[in-house]
Design a protein around this nucleic acid. Structure first.
Length: 908
DNA sequence: GTGCATTCGTA
DNA sequence: GTACGAATGCACA
């Protein structure tokens, strides 16, 4: 067997690694972006693990110009500079690679390609096969019987290209690659080719003529005149291109094969660096590899000696488990169920883990049999209800709710790995599969292996035999436990213990109560409104079709645009221009665009149609379908780990976007009613919460004093920036001031404000200048947030919630400025989220401690909605107001407005 | 069936 | 100009 020499184009691999993570960069707790280093090492390990090369070298480009620049000044001239943020990671990568013993090569004046070409030519022999890892098709010219291209693929198998595969892939022999590239040019290197000649034409020409020289000798054999003309015109250019694309295989570099011998790294040397980078999984894997046990890092499967997964099917076994469970201070529990909807879900079984590598699965609802469900759950009540035993889980709210649905209350929800991961990096992923790979470098058994792919034929857990499920279920619990051990320490390191244990975990219980209780809606009212709108919509539809002269899909912005502006050309009637086009080249037909053409009766009708159809389809028709037949109520899900800022989100349905701004839309709120006869709806909302938080965070004296005087903040702002008295403030003044106040929270630019207020950029600029003159510390605050993001890599909220902003150093202005706006907005929006969560916990505790006849129903970012017994609603409103206003001590007062009524609409 | 784009509802 | 989720159409498989 030949020995293998791997020659890796390090610069190319570095680029690829960086961009693989650019959407979701890897950031360690120090805020250092480690994406490129991680990706690079990962690729390297993959190769080594798979191929066990005897020799390996990593080759880099240098910054010095090469002989190609001398031949052709424009060489690579159009290539974009490496992003700063990417360049910043390079020294770290080199440091790591050196510590891991890799042979690194570079030489001024030569590209990595040339060095690789030289070494490949020098060392390829009957004894040594050379594999080039580059991704660049230029390298195909080097391929021969002992030189191959090796391309890493995203998943599974790498692609290995030998002579035959090159011919299949490109349509030319390796010896023809140079000519082929020269004919078609290379955009990324700024080498122009022959106009109109791409991969295919170039390959055809070479198949016909063999080489460029021969092609020009027989140029008259080309019948297509245009092609011939282009070829002739580019003749000199093609010769230059040939020289540029030819890889130099005679680079004077003093390297012997023995210098490239791959020697396994020493963990003593790389270990500390990997630890600094916080590459835990990778470090484990490298350790395993260095010990010569490549498979070891695959976490042991159920049947291996270190993992004990147990299926519990008999009462005796269960009783033994229960006895041990009772002695634990903490355990992971995880349910397998028949459905993701907690009201529908049947329990298939429960897995437990309190020691890494050991887990048990209690089969309760499998085919053909399992333990008696009710009896077993009854026996488990004690441990679940025991507040001394800490419960750990992944997305524990779901499991706990199902237990409660089955009559088993769960006390002491101590640790949710999903939430912990969310706090460490809110913009990342938090599903168990991802966490397992990220923290443990372990690939979970895919659930599809068990229940099949999504779709009609997907099985339910309860359809399967327990013997098939338990390994999967035990693995879930085991992995969750291992991740828990890591994340627990991480939270401490990040200074997030109180945020986690005192805010996020306690809120889980509150959300559970809200979701399980649900909110009553008046189905009949919704149906009546729907019928009413349905008739109106039909009428408008007919009118529009008449005017258009044909029927089309009014819901399709694409078709609508064509009808309005190509067919009817309504812009001409109005003496206006066509609207701008969207990214995908269709006419914009958004509300904002249509507004401009609204004087046309057809457009006015379409706008009305849009409004009505939206209300009907999104709310009136959707909500009744989500009423649970068992409870007669709507049970939304509150998601605690999706927003980047710390807010909750709501889905299935989203009850955080029920209309309020238009009268017709508001009517939908009339359908949200108490679930009991003698109850009322209470709505409590924070007044100007985000502005108040900004006043607090900035410490701006003027704004603080405005709030302390309990002034109408927008009017007060208007008076100050326009230099008039409060009495002189008109509605228009106030509106403008309000826009600026809001705009500031969003980190707006003068351009944005101008757009919003329909004024010139200069005027907007002036407004903003006046604003900052009025509230000087607000401007300082904004600057400070941007600075903080630059220095630390993240910004944080009042309770220490973080958001990483790697884009803050992005050289692309648009991207960078977006990050700057987020740096301003996130501490404000996120602190408001912290605040209301705190209030929710206190209110829920109050309700439960006192047994108050009230229930929290909804949270809409700055508003809480309850149902409360009529005769005690005043008392409750007072208490809620007191708690919400006292949730945190700020430099400004917090103001909460309460309203009660027979439904959500009238509670406002 | 899945994924993206557009639009529009909320704070 | 921040933060979301849902309905719809449409191009792809």
């Amino acid at each position: 067997m030949s020995k293998k020499l791997f020659l890796i184009d390090g610069s190319a691999m570095y680029y690829r690694s960086y961009f693989a993570f650019s959407r979701n960069p890897l950031i360690n707790s120090k805020g250092e972006n480690t994406s490129a280093t991680f990706g690079f090492l990962n690729s390297l390990l993959k190769i080594i693990d798979r191929e066990h090369p005897e020799y390996l070298a990593i080759v880099f480009d240098t910054k010095e110009p090469t002989f190609r620049h001398k031949i052709y000044e424009e060489y690579k001239a159009t290539r974009e500079k490496m992003p700063d943020e990417m360049a910043a990671q390079f020294p770290r990568l080199v440091e790591t690679l050196k510590a891991a013993n890799f042979a690194l090569l570079e030489k001024d004046g030569y590209e990595a390609d040339d060095i690789i070409g030289t070494l490949a030519t020098r060392f390829a022999s009957d004894e040594v096969d050379v594999y080039i890892v580059s991704g660049d098709k230029d390298m195909a010219q080097l391929v021969n019987g002992h030189v191959f291209l090796y391309n890493l693929k995203k998943q599974d198998e790498p692609e290995i290209l030998d002579r035959q595969k090159i011919v299949e892939k490109y349509g030319v022999q390796p010896e023809q690659i140079i000519d082929w590239l020269a004919l078609m040019g290379d955009k990324s290197d700024n080498i122009p080719g022959v106009p109109k000649v791409g991969e295919v034409t170039a390959a055809k020409l070479l198949q016909q003529f063999g080489s460029i020289d021969n092609l020009y000798k027989n140029i008259d054999a080309i019948s297509r005149e245009a092609l011939k003309k282009n070829l002739l015109a580019a003749r000199d250019q093609v010769q230059i291109a040939r020289r540029l694309t030819t890889i130099d295989t005679n680079v004077p570099i003093d390297v012997k094969l023995e210098d490239l011998k791959f020697r396994m790294w020493d963990m003593e040397t790389v270990g500390p660096i990997l630890q600094e980078l916080e590459f835990r999984g990778l470090a484990n894997r490298m350790k395993a590899m260095s010990l010569g046990q490549e498979e070891a890092m695959e976490l042991r499967k159920f049947n291996s000696k270190d993992v004990r997964y147990q299926l519990i099917e008999s009462e005796e076994e269960f009783d033994r488990l229960l006895d041990t469970l009772k002695e634990q201070k903490e355990f992971v529990f995880d349910l397998e169920t028949s459905s993701l909807d907690f009201l529908e879900a049947e329990i298939a079984g429960i897995s437990f883990c309190w020691d890494a590598g050991q887990a048990s699965y209690i089969a309760l609802g499998h085919e053909p049999r399992g333990l008696d469900r009710n009896k077993t759950l009854e026996k488990l009540r004690g441990v679940f209800a025991d507040p001394q035993i800490r419960k750990i889980g992944q997305n524990i709210k779901y499991d706990a709710m199902i237990m409660e649905q089955h009559g088993v209350p769960v006390k002491n929800l101590y640790f949710d790995t999903m939430i912990a991961s969310y706090l460490i990096n809110p913009t990342g992923q938090h599903n168990l599969d991802y966490l397992a790979e990220h923290y443990l470098n372990y690939k979970m058994i895919p659930i599809e292996d068990l229940i099949g792919k999504k779709g009609r034929n997907q099985k339910k857990m309860t359809d399967l035999a327990a013997g098939l499920v338990y390994q999967y279920a035990c693995e879930d619990a085991d992995i969750t436990y291992r991740i828990y051990q890591i994340l627990k320490k991480d939270l401490k390191k990040h200074g997030m213990e109180s945020l986690f244990y005192e805010l996020e975990m306690p809120i889980v219980h509150v959300l559970m109560q809200m979701e399980m209780h649900g909110v009553k809606v008046d189905r009949k009212l919704l149906e009546e409104l729907s019928d009413q709108l349905g008739r109106k919509i039909k009428a408008i539809e007919q009118k529009v079709y008449q005017a258009a002269g044909e029927e089309f899909n009014l819901n399709s912005p694409q078709q609508l645009g064509v009808i309005l502006f190509d067919r009817l050309e309504i812009h001409k009637e109005l003496g206006m221009r066509k609207p701008s086009k969207t990214k995908t080249g269709q006419y914009s037909t958004s509300e904002k665009t249509l507004e401009r053409y609204a004087s046309h009766p057809l457009v006015a009708d379409i706008m009305e149609y849009r409004k009505l159809i939206k209300l009907k389809s999104t709310y009136l028709d959707a909500l009744p379908q989500l009423i649970n037949p068992r409870t007669g109520k709507i049970h939304t899900s509150y998601n605690q780990t999706v927003t980047a800022t710390g807010r909750l989100s709501s889905s299935n349905p989203n009850l955080q976007n029920i209309p309020i701004r238009t009268d017709l839309g508001r009517e939908i709120r009339r359908a949200f009613i108490p679930s009991k006869d003698d109850y009322l709806i209470l709505s409590a909302d924070y007044s100007q919460i985000e502005l108040r938080i900004m006043a607090h965070l900035s410490g701006d004296e003027t704004m603080i004093s405005n709030f302390k005087k309990n002034l109408d903040i927008h009017a007060a702002t208007a008076a100050l920036i326009f230099g008039i008295s409060v009495e002189e403030v008109t509605a228009d003044h106030r509106r403008k001031a309000k826009e600026i106040n809001f705009g500031i929270i969003y980190g707006m630019s003068e351009y944005g404000l101008a757009n919003r207020l329909n004024i010139s950029t200069d005027e907007a600029k002036e407004f903003i200048a006046d604003y900052f003159a009025t509230y000087p510390k607000i401007g300082e605050f904004m600057q400070r947030m941007i600075e903080e993001a630059r220095e630390k890599g993240y910004v944080e909220t009042m309770l220490g919630r973080r958001r990483y902003l790697p884009e803050i150093r992005n050289p692309n202005r648009q991207i960078r400025e977006f990050a700057e706006r987020t740096a301003i907005n996130t501490p404000i929006q996120g602190s408001a989220a912290d605040l209301i969560k705190k209030a929710m916990i206190t209110i829920q505790t109050f309700i439960e401690n006192v047994g108050f006849p009230a229930q929290m129903l909804l949270q809409v970012h700055d508003e809480l909605v309850f149902e409360v017994q009529k005769k005690r609603s005043d008392e409750f409103a007072k208490k809620v107001k007191e708690i919400m206003e006292g949730a945190m001590e700020l430099r400004v007062p917090l103001v909460v407005e309460c309203g009660v009524g027979p439904n959500w609409l009238e509670a406002h």
